[in-house]
């Protein structure tokens, strides 16, 4: 067997093997590498690289060492999944740097963090005044996480509307011009509905690149033809406007009418609609 062929076979089979191993190690490895996992990754890669080029190395030895290097982290993550103490030992503990708005100098010293570095990390989180911080903690993977004081926290929807309407995830019903039946069924809709909605907006299905349905059943589309202007769904705004108009009309009628009975009827219904407006407005605003 020529040398190049052997190298090629080795490389391809090692590539496949590495692919399988990375699948086993899972997604977690990608997002947050601990120092240990980092070293493991580099070493496995190095062994694989050497094995595929250096034909003097015995395949058995190489494969054994790769297996050990890659299966050891699997074993460790399996044990730490079931044992909190072991997990703390392997992954390390988080260290509190700021508590009740006060910097804990002892903990800084223990993690060999200078106050400059702490402030740099805080600035990365858009915090320029240490006094704004209620609580800050250094995670085992080296990230600093910050809880701002209540009055410095950004405004959330829940602060403005006590009971905001919940919004579910939108479903993509057309992708690359193909109708996806499963998400449509999830929303309790079907192809007939989709066609009606598109007809309403005057769009041919062949022209649709992407279409999504939000949790209120409103359809938004992106077309292949970018020169066409698509209207955003306005059903909610129109409904809100209609409600306001009818409510105002009733108040007007109540003032204009001569009949006492009709006046009362208009006033009662104007009030009803007003209450309804209060209740329904958060749902119709987006």
């Amino acid at each position: 067997m020529p040398i190049w062929l052997e190298a090629a076979i080795r490389s391809v089979s090692i590539l496949i093997g590495l692919f399988v191993i990375t699948r086993i190690l899972g997604k977690k490895q990608l997002s947050k590498l601990s120092f240990f996992e980092y070293i493991v990754g580099i070493t496995v890669g190095d062994i694989a690289g050497t094995m595929s080029t250096d034909l003097d190395i015995n395949l058995q030895e190489g494969i054994t060492s790769i297996l050990i290097w890659s299966l050891f982290p699997v074993l460790i993550s399996y044990i730490s999944l079931h044992n909190k103490k072991f997990r703390d030992f392997v992954e390390g503990n988080s260290t509190v740097f700021i508590k009740n708005g006060k910097v804990l100098e002892e903990n800084l010293k223990r993690e060999k963090y200078t106050i400059d570095e702490l402030m740099e990390q805080l600035r990365k989180k858009d915090v320029f005044r240490v006094a704004d911080v209620e609580f800050a903690v250094l995670e085992p993977n080296g990230d600093l996480n910050v809880l701002l004081k209540r009055e410095k926290q950004p405004l959330a929807v829940g602060d403005v509307f006590p009971n905001p309407p919940s919004e579910k995830e939108p479903q993509t019903v057309v992708m690359d011009g193909k109708i996806l039946d499963e998400p449509l069924a999830t929303m309790g809709l079907n192809r007939g509905w989709l066609k009606t909605e598109l007809d309403k907006q005057g769009i041919a299905i062949e022209n649709v690149f992407l279409a999504q349905v939000d949790s209120y059943g409103q359809l938004t589309v992106d077309l292949y033809d970018d020169k066409l202007n698509v209207q955003q769904p306005q059903d909610k705004q129109l409904l809100l406007a209609a409600m306001k108009k009818v409510q105002a009309d009733f108040e007007l009628f109540a003032l204009e009418t001569q009949s006492e009975e009709a006046k009362q009827m208009y006033e009662k219904n104007a009030k009803k609609l007003n209450d309804l407006l209060q209740k329904i407005t958060p749902l119709l605003k987006n």
């Binding site: 309407p165 919940s166 919004e167 579910k168 929303m187 309790g188 809709l189 949790s215 209120y216 059943g217 059903d235 909610k236 409904l239 209740k279 329904i280 749902l283």
Partner: peptide, 15 residues
């Protein structure tokens, strides 16, 4: 229409 097409139960009821 909104009562039928909304997926959130609270919204459905309100509509």
């Amino acid at each position: 229409q909104f009562a039928l097409t909304s997926t959130d139960e609270k919204a459905q009821r309100a509509f």
